[in-house]
């Protein structure tokens, strides 16, 4: 166990935000879960008791008839905002006094940094470079993430859970978002920051970064395993595999929706449903491709003269 190496990575000034992000995320997930749980209990109670549903103020916080439903922004909100600004300023001051922003040697194109890492918030994308060609990891994926985020309000037709925390009323939406945000985005950043060492090789926390380490890994392409040698054959094979994934996956999504979320499905238009299918399958394809590489050393699935996937 190389504690020094571990400490160097964790205490590198630009890695501190990620070290901070982990407990922050844990705290806010807990805070959200606590409120979601309370709201779900309230909903369950109101569902079984229609008389209560008519009179209850429908929030988990206390309320008595005669209480004001609204409060004045001045001072009840402004004092909180003022306090928040002061607290943030204090945190920033303390952080800036105790920790210096990194400054390395002057830029030198002839001296490559190893590992050369992007800013921490893009390390998830850089980690994807291991599994995908740059045009996918660096261009297509970020574009799809942005578009995917933007379509969320238009494909989520579930009217429940608007303006309050809940889990039971939005299981699918919340688990999909958690999968994308926590597993695909944040954990890839953590891997990219703390695990990837020289040559972008995998070093467990505490393992010494060995700049001379070589890994002999023979990656194969999926068509090779099936003994397909001609370019045309490989292109058609890949098209069938990728096309098959989307066709079969699309059908699977359909049957899952029909069975487990019939109301959401009936609310969705064909366009809304096919966009949901497409983004869902692309998102799931990410860890699938990673598994193909990690378990069977498969590099490409679909090989064409112009691009490889």
């Amino acid at each position: 166990m190389d504690w020094r190496q571990l400490w160097e990575i964790i205490s590198a000034p630009d890695n501190v935000p990620i070290v901070g992000l982990i407990p922050l995320l844990a705290f806010y997930i807990y805070l959200a879960w606590k409120q979601a749980h309370a709201n779900d209990q309230l909903v369950a109670q109101l569902e079984t008791d229609p008389a209560m549903a008519k009179t209850h103020h429908r929030k988990t916080w206390p309320f008595k008839p005669g209480w004001q439903k609204e409060v004045h922004v001045w001072p009840f909100l402004l004092r909180i905002e003022f306090l928040a600004a002061i607290i943030v300023t204090i945190i920033l001051m303390v952080w800036s006094i105790t920790l210096n922003a990194p400054l390395e040697e002057p830029a030198n194109p002839n001296l490559t940094m190893n590992p050369a890492k992007a800013p921490w918030y893009f390390l998830g994308l850089q980690e994807m470079l291991v599994y995908f060609d740059p045009w996918i990891a660096g261009v297509v994926m970020p574009t799809l993430i942005i578009i995917g985020l933007m379509v969320i309000p238009y494909i989520d037709t579930n009217p429940k859970g608007s303006g309050y925390y809940t889990w039971k009323q939005r299981r699918f939406a919340i688990s999909t978002f958690l999968f994308g945000f926590i597993i695909l985005w944040v954990s890839m950043i953590i891997i990219g920051t703390f695990i990837r060492g020289p040559g972008w090789q995998w070093f467990w926390p505490g393992q010494t970064w060995d700049h001379n380490r070589l890994i002999y890994e023979v990656n194969r392409d999926l068509p090779d395993i099936f003994g397909i040698t001609s370019n045309l054959g490989k292109a058609i094979f890949g098209l069938v595999i990728v096309g098959g994934y989307f066709a079969l996956g699309g059908f699977l999504v359909y049957s899952l929706f029909r069975r487990y979320m019939p109301k959401d499905f009936s609310r969705m238009s064909l366009l809304q449903f096919s966009i949901t299918q497409a983004f869902l399958l692309i998102m799931v394809a990410l860890p699938l491709k990673m598994l193909l590489r990690l378990l069977w050393h498969i590099k490409y699935v679909w090989i064409t003269p112009w691009f490889n996937i």
Binding site: E104, A107, T112, M113, A116, K117, A118, P119, P134
Partner: peptide, 14 residues
């Protein structure tokens, strides 16, 4: 510096 230079090199190489 080296940090920014290589981070931006990696980023824009994409």
């Amino acid at each position: 510096d080296q940090l920014g230079f290589w981070a931006v090199t990696v980023g824009t190489n994409m």
